[in-house]
């Protein structure tokens, strides 16, 4: 299944590094898919912190990063009630709505299920992804 999200036109910098975009092109709340690897890599700006995960759902291999981004609901044992947390950090796969934390690549429901994460940083105003 092809990735429907427009793929950002970045540039390969070295065998291990890839320039995804200019920093200002990835403001908080946005995501771009870098054409790295077989499926692409989703690079997220969550409240100013950058994360990158493989655009590949650990479930059926759906295009994980082309779905919607949310927070999630977790039970708070101390308060004894559900809380809405991790706002902007949860990618939901467009196929089966699995929730993946973009900071860790781990499924919220089942920590044994995870997708690959990548190091990403800002250098000289550019977003640089390490494969």
């Amino acid at each position: 299944m092809q990735v429907r999200q427009p793929i950002n036109k970045g540039a390969r910098r070295s065998a291990r590094e890839y320039v995804v975009c200019r920093q200002e092109d990835l403001p908080p709340g946005r995501m771009v898919i870098a054409p790295v690897g077989k499926f692409g890599v989703g690079v997220y700006n969550v409240h100013g912190i950058l994360y990158a995960i493989n655009n590949y759902c650990p479930h059926m291999g759906g295009p994980l990063c082309s779905g919607n981004v949310y927070g999630t609901n977790l039970w708070d044992d101390v308060r004894g009630r559900a809380e809405h947390v991790l706002d902007g950090r949860i990618a939901r796969c467009p196929w089966h709505a699995w929730e993946i934390d973009v900071a860790t690549g781990v499924s919220v429901a089942d920590a044994r299920k995870r997708t690959r994460t990548y190091d990403v940083r800002v250098e000289n105003g550019e977003v640089v992804l390490t494969r």
Partner: peptide, 15 residues
């Protein structure tokens, strides 16, 4: 199904 709609029942915190 829980894997996809877990957020509707967050008190169910394991399979």
């Amino acid at each position: 199904l829980w894997l996809g709609v877990r957020d509707q029942t967050p008190w169910v915190d394991r399979p």
